[in-house]
Design a protein around this nucleic acid. Structure first.
Length: 267
DNA sequence: GTCCAGGTTTTTA
DNA sequence: TAAAAACATGGA
């Protein structure tokens, strides 16, 4: 057992597009809400924070990212470069319903606006847990609503998708707890029965909400990255931690737009 | 005004 | 079947 936590950087983990409820403060710390708890975490207080089992689990402290990163890097030199770009990134153990709902909102949308919609969703339908912070509303709560009643969060055409997801999850027709352990393809299909959930959102829910680390969300950035950086390579070839590889590649690609300059010029 | 945003559904050929 | 277009909203 290591007594020092390695491969953990707050910015790389909380600002890499996997979650939408964390904000960087002026002092460099991050404040956010998860599982109905408010947290401010910084480089200074993180050791103390991580004594709490809730947060240890949330930040996936039980998994050895040093080892996974080394193994992925050994497999592929380009992947090694992507991993080295953000070696402190971790896949959070988010609430499954929150992740599903958040990534439904993310479709054809930009991250700042997703954060705004999620914030309004929580303020309007979550519980106040103190100091102007709100919990993420439960599927049961949102299942009571009609799309029109979500007008104030300004999610646009996604409102009806949120309602569909809430109803299927609240009724148990989509059993998120079961999807954590059932065969991956079966879990993916179950998620895609929700109106407004396609392959990409399903994979995001699997990876970020259900911690299915072999899931590999393919958005526009990843399609481009795979073509340019990994020609001929399939997601499955990255193995059981393909989802972690995906997150390294996604973050690396988004923060190095010049990688695709030649391709852009060619059209 | 036009284009785009961690896509999916609906319509059209 | 496969390729377009539509879908709400807001910032660049």
């Amino acid at each position: 057992m290591k007594n020092q936590i390695t491969s953990f950087d707050l910015e790389q983990t909380l600002d890499c597009g996997q979650c939408f409820r964390w904000d960087k403060q002026g002092d460099g710390s991050y404040t956010g809400v998860a599982f109905g708890q408010i947290l401010n975490i910084s480089a200074e207080n993180r050791e103390e924070v991580l004594r709490d089992q809730l947060w240890r689990n949330y930040f996936d402290i039980g998994l050895d990212y040093d080892e996974i990163r080394a193994a992925l890097s050994k497999e592929d030199a380009v992947l090694a470069r992507a991993a080295d770009f953000a070696p402190g990134m971790r896949i959070l153990n988010q609430d499954p319903w929150e992740a599903l709902c958040s990534f439904i909102i993310s479709q054809n949308n930009n991250i700042p606006r997703v954060k705004g919609i999620v914030a309004r969703l929580c303020t309007q339908f979550g519980d106040e847990i103190g100091d102007g912070y709100y919990s993420f509303p439960t599927a049961e709560r949102l299942a009571e609503l009609k799309p029109e009643e979500l007008a104030d969060i300004r999610s646009g055409f996604r409102a009806k998708y949120i309602c569909s997801a809430a109803q299927k999850v609240a009724s148990g027709e989509v059993d998120l707890a079961y999807l954590k352990t059932c065969p991956l393809t079966q879990a993916r299909e179950a998620l895609m029965t929700i109106h407004g959930v396609g392959p990409k959102v399903a994979d995001c829910a699997l990876l970020y909400g259900l911690h299915r680390l072999e899931a590999f969300p393919m958005d526009v950035w990843m399609k481009r990255a795979m073509q340019t950086l990994f020609p001929g390579k399939l997601p499955e070839s990255f193995g059981q931690y393909a989802g972690i590889a995906q997150q390294y590649i996604f973050h690396y690609s988004r923060n190095n737009p010049t990688l695709f300059a030649a391709e852009d010029k060619a059209g």
